[in-house]
Amino acid sequence: MGHGILLSADANIDFMIHGITKYSFFGHEVWITTTHVCVLIVLLIIAGFSIAANRVLVKASEVPTGFQNVVELMVEKLDGIVNNAMGRNAPGFYNYIGTIFVFILVSNISGLLGLRPPTADYGVTLPLGVLTFLLIHINQFKHQKLKDIWVDMCSPLPPWLPIWFPINLISEVAVPISLSLRLFANVLSGTVMMALIYGLLGWIATIWPAALHVYFDLFSGAIQTYVFCMLTMTYINNAIGDA
């Protein structure tokens, strides 16, 4: 019984998350999925690179050569991005933005290694969005007065008439959701597209899918990484304000 081409051919097309083992966590059934394994592989790659970079930088020379050049270039580029976006608030955020940048970038381009990109799982991108949300509001409460925040939340109307407050509240809550859904949907669409090409056109899929990999994995992944970090920095900068 065929359910259309997409659903009948799903023996070949596989881009879903699969459970590997399950265990009981205080009575809840919790699954270890392929996403966990892919995140672990990504973290091992990053950790390996970090250890190698540390080895080199411990005995760094004044004039960098070889691998030290690469590491210094990466750090300078990342710090440059943060500097451009955040101005004088930048020094506190080099570490955080650099970390999520490297993690999301390696996750997005891990499709090239044959992994299912971890960021194509909403369970990975939502925590990233929630982290941004927490950072926005922690910084807002740290750097602005409560009264200013209240005036801002009632913004088009005067502060004694909080009719717009619920609407502004919804727009605040929408920030992490739209951030995480943007990253998730972009990476997922690339994953689905590649799965469809390999599944339905597998008999002629030689060499030319490489071009699509360059677009969907490298280009789209890099752009979305940049956009996620850029938006995070912009929101945090707005929250800090001029104080």
């Binding site: 739209s178 943007r182 972009n186 752009i223 850029m230």
Partner: peptide, 12 residues
């Protein structure tokens, strides 16, 4: 690129 990525959201 930033603006395009934000504009893309509704389509996604």
């Amino acid at each position: 690129l930033l603006g395009q990525a934000v504009a893309e959201t509704t389509g996604l």
